[in-house]
């Protein structure tokens, strides 16, 4: 019944061209010799060289990675706890407020989140720097983690946990030995999501970063505000390539796992039949 028509082919071709052409153009022009980004003057990798000699960018990149690793790790722990509380703890005082505080940051405009955290940090006299960015990123990222993890917890067969408890596990052992291995894929994708959100964030970081610590997006933003720059094209190319390699290999791995599972099931069927 499902027919793949000319209309479908056109929609997909145009749609993916729209999604990918701007990025391909960016990558193409990062190898341009000319400083003028719209005039092709021959192949060159000089902008990559300049980029790696630019210490301000390297410092910012290191700060960004530090913030992303620390905040996404704390956010994963807190977010998993929050998800567990939401799905498993039943009723407790202030549950509505709690779930509100989990979902609200997801839809809160970044400018408001940034502004409110900055006003808090100034109010309690906390100097702005790496620490304040980590606190800010952890807070919004833990909400994303808890949404990802709680959707996995919802479909999870609770009798497995109960069996572990009946067999003499403590609540923590049951969590560590039964629940955690089963929700692990969701916890890992939660961490990756938190990590990417932190790497990406410009607005909240701009509010909460002090003069002592800038992140890569802040650096990129102040550079591109003045116009297109070949160095930023080179930087973008590196970032796009890393993401592409990551996403493509993740999807290949999951595809292989699916194929393997199918094969195992067929083998089991044959053995049974």
């Amino acid at each position: 019944m499902r027919r793949f028509s000319w209309f479908n082919a056109t929609a997909l071709t145009l749609g993916f061209a729209f999604l990918y052409l701007p990025m391909l153009v960016l990558i193409f022009y990062s190898f341009n010799k000319s400083k003028l980004v719209t005039v092709w003057a021959g192949f060159s990798t000089q902008w990559y060289g300049e980029l790696f000699r630019n210490e301000a960018f390297l410092d910012a990149a290191i700060n960004t990675l530090k913030v992303a690793v620390i905040s996404s790790t704390i956010a994963t722990v807190l977010g998993t706890m929050a998800a567990y509380v939401l799905i498993r703890s039943g009723r407790f005082a202030g549950r509505t407020l709690f779930s509100g505080m989990i979902y609200a940051p997801l839809v809160m405009p970044e400018v408001i989140t940034g502004l409110s955290l900055l006003l808090l940090f100034i109010g309690i006299g906390l100097d702005r720097g790496i620490l304040t960015i980590v606190l800010a990123h952890t807070t919004f990222a833990m909400c994303y983690v808890s949404v990802v993890v709680s959707s996995r917890l919802m479909t999870f067969d609770r009798s497995l946990e109960e069996a572990a408890l009946d067999l003499g596990c403590s609540a923590f052992e049951a969590f560590r030995l039964v629940t955690l291995p089963i929700i692990a894929p969701a916890v890992i994708s939660g961490w990756l999501l938190a990590f990417t959100l932190s790497l990406d964030d410009l607005v909240i970081a701009s509010f909460t970063a002090g003069p002592s610590a800038t992140t890569l997006p802040i650096k990129i933003f102040s550079a591109v505000r003045l116009g297109v720059s070949p160095e930023i094209n080179a930087l973008s190319t590196i970032m796009i390539s890393v993401v592409a390699v990551g996403v493509i290999s993740a999807s290949l791995i999951s595809k292989r796992a699916a194929v393997q599972q199918k094969r195992d099931e067929q083998a089991a069927d044959r053995a049974a039949g």
Binding site: P22, P217, F221, S236, V243, A244, G246
Partner: peptide, 26 residues
């Protein structure tokens, strides 16, 4: 379908700022 789905998700993992920036040259 899995490939098409991956192609839709991939831009989502790419920096938002860079995707906006890519239009400046165009």
């Amino acid at each position: 379908r899995p490939t098409l789905l991956m192609l839709i998700i991939l831009p989502f993992w790419t920096s938002f700022l860079i995707r906006v920036y890519s239009w400046m040259g165009i």
